[in-house]
């Protein structure tokens, strides 16, 4: 069944729900309505995850069928996804039949496949960040970049705390940087982001921005 809501209807629903949830944040009397809408939203968000997984599968199925040079990776992804799904279902059935949790296979996949992979990826990020810090002066040789470069060095050295090789004043400098300039800058950025967030939300509530389609 293909249900298509016309733009005014979908926009009215989106705006109405948004206004109620926002008002419920400030007006306690409509908290229950807000809560009901939030619960509905949670279910939809969970379903959206399933829809996203299906989309992921369909996209990589298409890539497998084409002459894409990365079709091999798509094949691995699809196999891994289906295998994990089957293992999870088996674990759930076993837990239901045994009456106690039994997620050995799922934990094994997570512990020995996903966790090492993602940890290694984070380690690569460390290398990438180091490289980015080292090459920033090549990209932009200006006052801000030079400041950025030396602040990185000071904060890292301030974190270095092997007793025999630690310079005490570096800890003080690091703490000062973290508490004063970094915090002040972060606050300023967060205020700007908050203002941007408010205007974005208001535009959505006004219906001028409609990411839910026209």
């Amino acid at each position: 069944m293909n249900i298509k809501l016309r733009a005014p209807v979908s926009a009215a629903i989106a705006i109405g729900v948004g206004v109620v949830v926002l008002a419920g944040y400030f007006i306690p009397s409509i908290t229950n309505i807000r809560f009901a809408l939030l619960r509905t939203g949670l279910v939809l968000a969970a379903v959206a995850l399933l829809v996203g997984i299906i989309n992921l599968l369909s996209v990589h199925f298409k890539k497998m069928g084409s002459d894409n040079e990365n079709s091999g990776y798509s094949l691995i992804l699809v196999i891994a996804l289906l295998l994990t799904l089957v293992v999870g279902i088996i674990d759930m059935v076993q837990s239901y039949m045994l009456g106690q949790p039994n997620f050995q296979m799922t934990n094994w996949i997570f512990t020995y496949i996903q966790l090492p992979i993602e940890t290694s990826l984070l380690a690569v990020i460390a290398v990438s960040l180091t490289y980015a810090a080292a090459s920033i002066l090549r990209k932009r040789m200006d006052l801000f970049s030079i400041t950025f470069f030396f602040v990185i060095l000071l904060v890292l050295l301030g974190s270095f705390s092997i007793p025999s090789a630690t310079l005490p004043f570096l800890h003080v400098i690091r703490d000062w940087i973290v508490r004063v300039p970094a915090l002040g800058g972060a606050r300023g950025l967060l205020i700007g982001i908050a203002l941007g967030t408010i205007t974005t939300g208001i535009r959505i509530l006004m219906g001028t921005d409609r990411p839910y389609g026209d």
Binding site: A126, T130, A133, A134, L137, L153, L156, S159
Partner: peptide, 18 residues
């Protein structure tokens, strides 16, 4: 040790790039 090596690498690499 990781911090020390990282600082050294960034410093040397940054100076070289500068």
């Amino acid at each position: 040790i990781g911090i020390f090596i990282t600082v050294g690498t960034i410093f040397i690499g940054g100076l070289a790039n500068g």
